[in-house]
Amino acid sequence: MKIAVLVNEGPYQHQASDSAYHFVAAALDAGHEVSRVFFYHDGVNNGSRLTTPPQDDRHIQKRWSALAEEKSVDLVLCVAACQRRGLVDEGERERNGKDASNIAEGFRISGLGQLLEAGIEADRLVTFGD
């Protein structure tokens, strides 16, 4: 089955991104295709490479990045949600005259259209959040 995932909550604050990660990993292990993970609302904070959790805690961002690298999962952060929350890639840094970028490896910033497209093209769109 072709599955798309929507993550609506930030890491550590809420279990949604943990659950989404475990769901995606399990779906891939079971032979399903995960066409895209779209991060919206505070969910975009999953993609900050400046994330530095305590050493004895799980590293949510790195876990996602590894999934992108090893399984080619498309991790997309909503641009409008990113701009509000200070998530910046190189293109956005240049466009908005910021002094730094902070997007982690394996993530990309794009428009909400990517969420709609994922919903149209996947067999199931699975949402994680309240």
Binding site: H41, L112, G113, L116
Partner: peptide, 19 residues
């Protein structure tokens, strides 16, 4: 919370997809 505003933004963007 921001959910209502960001939901509306999704509806508006989604309109371009003729669904």
């Amino acid at each position: 919370t921001v959910y209502a505003l960001e939901s509306l933004e999704t509806v508006l963007i989604g309109a371009a997809f003729d669904q």
